[in-house]
Design a protein around this nucleic acid. Structure first.
Lengths: 163, 163
DNA sequence: TTAATCGGCGATTAACTTAGTCTTCGATTG
DNA sequence: CAATCGAAGACTAAGTTAATCGCCGATTAA
């Protein structure tokens, strides 16, 4: 039970897109190479991000991706939902309906499940936290954690390799 | 990305163990039959619950399982952890260490990952909620939600089939 | 004491999911 | 028009999950 690597790939990549001017873009190839990720797979991840309206694509030579909204309006949860889909972590199989009581008297079994409700509300607590952290927040966080040199090198890498 | 059905099976079964007197027990066969679950699989689920100290097993004929602590001291999270193991939902692959900067200068890359920390803290919010809901809480909740008839029938089923 | 009933455990299987690849396509640039 | 990009679907290999099977040791009732 865990999130797919796509989420991790996406979040790491999106940070690099923050500083890209809105008339420019970064190609999948660059992003993949810089981070040592499989290019074709990353391409699929960005397809999902694109469908979710988080990034927009620029086709053709010199094409690539850029953020399609302000980094303040992109939360961790937006990214996870884009990659993982809308399904909750806990999916009730409604096992009550296979049970003895249900077989004995069909209409007595309740159609909703208390256990499921508990799970959904717990997940909601997690999502709330994830919704409160935006891409721009992450960017500032990284500024205070990473050395100036690393951040400089990163920006240099993407600016020179896409002009 | 979702919890295994084992968690659902376990929670549903544990409710039925609450009213079992401490010198008695309920067999896997009964629990499985009552809920229409595969017996052999449920047996493995209870193996994990047993290892986690949530239930204790009574071997031999007329054997079965009973709670090994008070239902107030068994939380939803205890059950999930017993079945799913200790691993967090988001597992960082540390993709930074495959990247260009790391290859360029090994010692500059940070060994911890901000994204991972955010994920872990969000999960912790969910776990806190899950830790606050105990088996006895669930039992009371079910009392107020389910009809008296259903609860009565359930108790009757397990008391008569194990004597 | 012996047969039947229970949990414990490991090997196995079938279905499904995931990470990743390959290939074809259409759009863009030079 | 050719090279380079993203889009998309088919495909594959590996891993996971749900479930089964068989064998064991413990226990109990006849």
């Amino acid at each position: 039970m865990q999130y797919s690597v796509g989420v991790e790939y996406a979040l790491h990549c999106l940070v690099y897109l923050i500083d890209v001017p809105s008339n420019d873009s970064i190609g999948i190839k660059n992003l993949a190479e810089f981070q040592g990720l499989p290019e074709t797979f990353l391409s699929k991840v960005f397809g999902k991000l694109s469908k979710a309206g988080i990034v927009s694509s620029v086709p053709g030579v010199k094409g690539g991706y850029r953020l399609s909204k302000s980094p303040e309006d992109i939360s961790f949860w937006d990214v996870i939902e884009a990659i993982e889909g809308p399904n909750p972590i806990f999916q009730c199989k409604n096992i009550k309906e296979n049970g003895y009581l249900y077989r004995k008297n069909c209409c007595q079994a309740p159609s909703f499940c208390t256990i499921n409700l508990v799970m959904l509300s717990a997940e909601e607590k997690m999502r709330d936290d994830l919704r409160s952290k935006s891409l721009s927040w992450l960017n500032e966080e990284l500024d205070s954690v990473l050395s100036k040199q690393i951040r400089e090198d990163t920006r240099k890498y993407f600016s020179k390799s896409n002009t």
